[in-house]
Design a protein around this nucleic acid. Structure first.
Lengths: 265, 265
DNA sequence: GCAAAAGTGTTCTCTATACACCCATGG
DNA sequence: CCATGGGTGTATAGAGAACACTTTTGC
């Protein structure tokens, strides 16, 4: 418990003196595992609800850096695909199903006796939050709760738990963004391990788009992009033809990223 | 001058008591005129530099509402196409070419003797700004300067004047966004007058994309979307065939907006 | 040999592109 | 009748979708 008080004292000073008031960032961190698209979520201590990993912006840092730090601290990953997608500035956004975030915070902080009222007030103010979305290799990420939360886990987007504030809406918007991205950017490189089969990639696309794709056409379409390098075969031990493994040709991948599709006659 | 002092006193109270500190919004308002894509800009009093029309967020308003109000006050338009596109949170964003915004504000406010120091400080703080872009019919808009600025004018995006802070970057990002939008949304409805020729529409697309398009193919492509209604011919008096006028079929237009193009096999 | 999955091929349709052609208009 | 721009037609190449066919693998 002493450790908690100390952490809160540090937090208190950091937030009120060092962070921009009223601004936060939230990260929608996507991973792909077991044919499912997943999101990294935190569960607060003494609470059932979950939330997106988020943070505040140091007065001396770019906002992007704040997002980068959150991502790094929650996943342990350094080199990361990270993009801003939307800023949520509704005045009622801290409220969902009648539960206000202010009430939640008050209740939560009362568990820790020694907490300064200033901190409570700081946290209770209206926040405008900027959403970032990230694509990471789920096998390399090592989820770590922050000290406010008990759990840090991957949750399938098809079965999300109860989320606080407008975080469900934020995830939805991130997904919309991701789907649009898919139309003119190759994205697998961030979500898959180094080596993968064509089926892996197809299942990733299917998980994101929520649409079954035709196997042979998918293969042709992707290969024609010219960003994959075919490697050795993968002997699975199953009673069928062994699939090739692929990896991304990072140089060509990067060139393709520059383009996109265009309305050009 | 008395009027100014009063305005500043009102502003002072409004800002410090009524608006969220550290957050602003900026609007990139596009219009189309004389074959050129234009942006609505303001020029401060006693200054040569220009800026985007912007504003602050009332503590009791959604952020979207703040943007809507700015747009309305600067153009006089009510029913408007308005979209958030990006939030600019760089810590050095108020600085460009060595000139800080803080210095500019200080100098500017000194012209008005009676100004409270609190106001100066409030304006000098670090701001995170959210960019909105709008598409309006340039003929219906009635540009109005706010009381801080002298002029409010349309400027061609191909020849922008000197802009304060990171406003040039903001316009650039809005343009990028607009071009991407063009790939899967019809957008002319907001930028053109009720009736227009196919050439008008094509020139709008060319102005946005900065690419010449093939006349006959453009016509077919657009008509196939099924969102245009052909009207009477327009007799221009020129020595050539008279072009048809068109208007948008708003119902079908709206349906098409819902879709977009998709990676679906 | 058989089932299952992977890889490749074929066909059809639709779109994009380039360009040709005719039509309308006013001088 | 001619120059100019508008509307439509056409030919070709490429992409997407559906599906057939062949190959590989372990039982």
């Amino acid at each position: 418990m002493n450790q908690h008080i100390e952490e809160f004292t540090t937090l208190h000073k950091q937030l009120i003196n060092q962070c921009l008031p009223g601004n936060s960032i939230d990260c929608v961190i996507f991973g792909f595992d077991n044919h499912q698209l997943k999101v990294l979520l935190l569960q607060w201590k003494h609470e059932k609800v979950w939330s997106l990993p988020g943070g505040f912006i140091d007065k001396n840092d770019d906002m992007d850096k704040a997002a980068y730090r959150v991502l790094q601290e929650r996943t342990g990953l350094k080199s990361i695909f990270l993009n801003q997608f939307y800023t949520f500035g509704g005045k009622e956004r801290s409220q969902v199903n009648g539960v206000t975030q202010a009430r939640r915070i008050e209740k939560f902080l009362k568990e820790f006796k020694n907490v300064n009222q200033d901190l409570t007030n700081w946290l209770k103010q209206r926040f405008i939050t900027t959403g970032y979305f990230a694509l990471v290799d789920i096998n390399k990420a090592k989820p770590r709760p922050d000290f406010l939360s008990e759990k840090c886990e991957w949750k399938s987007i098809r079965n999300l738990p109860k989320l606080m504030m407008d975080h469900r809406k934020i995830i939805q918007k991130a997904l919309d963004h991701l789907r649009i991205q898919l139309n003119y950017l190759p994205i697998g490189i961030n979500l898959l391990p180094q080596k993968f089969t064509m089926q892996d990639l197809q299942q990733l696309y299917e998980a994101i788009l929520r649409v079954p794709l035709e196997r042979s056409n998918f293969q042709r379409k992707i290969l024609k992009l010219g960003i994959l390098i075919r490697l050795e075969k993968q002997m699975t031990g199953a009673a069928n033809k062994a699939p090739y493994l692929y990896k991304f040709d990072k140089a060509k991948y990067r060139i393709l990223i520059e383009k996109g599709i265009g309305f050009v006659s």
